[in-house]
Design a binder for these strands. Structure first.
Lengths: 191, 191, 191, 191
DNA sequence: AAATAAACGAGACGGTACGTCGAGTCTTGGG
DNA sequence: CCCAAGACTCGACGTACCGTCTCGTTTATTT
């Protein structure tokens, strides 16, 4: 079996919690490993032993806060599901941790380790499920079968990301409702 | 008149050029004032005399590279105008300087100086003009008058930003064409 | 009797041997407990269980290498005995272990634990025996009874320590012979 | 002429003074660059800019405290001159700074930079002058011309170094007087 | 033989200082 | 009065060891 003192799960938790706390007080660029270690009551070396880069720390802290598995409700409408989904996304992007990790991903290269991990552990699972939702709506005739799924999904997600992060305008439930309405207009089956 | 040695425009240009050059070689976090000064052949104090913050340096370098005033062609279609516009946007987001400044804006607060300047000097002028374009299409009956202009514009821009910066997928002219097509479906007048 | 696993003499030997080996490769300040543990194939805790301080480790390693009990030859002259004694001392001071422990003693305070142990376990026994030797030479009329034993002994030892450690000049047998000769001139009985 | 901001002599002085102060409170091994910088009110980088190694810092601090040029009195006896000289040496070796630098030299290799600088800037000048003093005493017939100057000088210096640093016994003026007396016995001309 | 108990190796832990690097400021001589 | 050069204070970086700890394992004595 593995010898030596085992890794402290308490330390790991404390580190990620410290990041969450600190990012609510300061910006990412003011977030120092030193302050994380202090707040977590942990030695700096412990942080460096398990994370190679500050961005991964933030990503892990982020992943800790988001729901492990996204659940869509089966007994409700396609519209309603998306509405909740986009509201959750909007809340995430308005949190400092969410804004931070997303802008870090934006800055990183397309095949950077950070982008890959963010995609595989956060983005993709959600994308996958919302794609299924969309497909189901096509299957039951609610939505036109001719659409490009990817583009339609981008039309749901993209405006929310853009409006909050770049355009710096509020995305409230009214906006989300109108957005969904507008996208639906172009994809609903007419028969 | 002001006495003493006048400010060196050559130094200013050299500094912004150095940033453009360096950002093609390294990431923003590896971009140091020291290296900028060295490459530009300039003292550090000269940089600090003109700019208060590294982000503004990058923003100014960015603004130097983008067209001062966006021109839409009047004698062509709404679709065609947007197509060119989004292709230009896509090219900008794929450049290291573009990706850098946008992610800096994404990370910054809604009413930070950086976001305000980026909005007023880059984002808003373009938004204004594309809004006019959209309005003109409504006026001549091409597009439904009932639409929410803001949301429709977000549906054009948002997917491009999102797809390049976050989802890390290519946005080529085929994608842009399909995107425009899909958005148009929901807004075109049917008569 | 005491229960539990007994202390490992093998580990103790390995530790002291590791120090001897490492001090021949690196300086004392580069000698780390970690490297000792690695070379000795021993856990750090085992070292700390037996020794409170790194200096004592070195002292113990030193004591392991020096003759347990100094032997003067009775059937030879006073001069000859001292000659051998000082040559041995010179060899010790030229070894890295010897130089290290002596400079540690030099740096330590007069009533530090290290100085006390070095004095009682190394210095004093030798001093005692050479004092006896000197006294014997006085008793048999070879040397003047009026001398201050302590000062004369310092005149034998001091130059050797000083010349090797501080003045950094070679102390070979010629030097030692001349030194003894010169000291003798001032203490030999003239009758 | 040289460009750029000139080196701050005030900072240099403050650094060396801080070392002198700190070494009176703590041992060399507890003397950290960090504490020197704090006490001196100086950035760590400034220390590293001018000194490569902590030992050189201590050496420079030591050289600052010792008389720049040793003065022997011409209108007094050889004995008296040496008496004062050895008393001064004894005082130096009993200071924490003196004990520290000497034990650092003792630990260092024969042709290390530290030993060389200590020899050339401290040891040699004094040795040179006391050698001249000895030579003068030979020239005026006070001392035998047959002696080995080097060995006789070692017999003056060695016992003082040894007794203070290694043997940890007091060296007061009585001891020095007796030592000089004893050495003189073996070298004085008898006519 | 089984249970108990201490020492062992391995290695993670909270710390501290290291030596480096860049930030932003200041002080020169020169333009 | 601006400029380059470069030294300054400051503070975080990532590394290396410190001395302590917590594991599973080993080796003895005690039951």
């Amino acid at each position: 079996m593995r010898v030596g003192r085992p890794r402290s799960e308490a330390a790991k938790k404390a580190i990620l919690q410290a990041i969450i706390q600190l990012l609510e007080e300061t910006s990412y660029s003011d977030l120092t490993i030193e302050s994380i270690a202090n707040v977590a009551g942990v030695g700096k070396a412990t942080i460096y032993r398990w994370w190679t880069h500050k961005t991964f720390l933030v990503l892990d802290a982020f992943l800790l806060t988001v729901e492990t598995n996204l659940k869509f409700h089966e007994n409700t409408t396609f519209r309603e599901n998306f509405r909740q989904h986009l509201n959750t996304l909007s809340a995430m992007l308005n949190s400092s941790l969410g804004r931070t990790i997303v802008s870090l991903v934006a800055e990183s290269g397309a095949d950077s380790e950070l982008a890959n991990k963010f995609t595989s552990e956060y983005l993709k699972p959600r994308r996958e499920q919302s794609r299924k939702l969309l497909q189901a709506a096509i299957d039951n005739g609610e939505i036109q079968p001719s659409i490009n799924l990817d583009i339609v999904l981008d039309m749901f997600y993209g405006p929310v990301y853009f409006r909050i992060l770049i355009y710096k305008k509020d995305v409230d439930s009214t906006y989300i409702d109108s957005l969904i309405e507008q996208v639906m207009k172009g994809i609903t089956s007419m028969n």
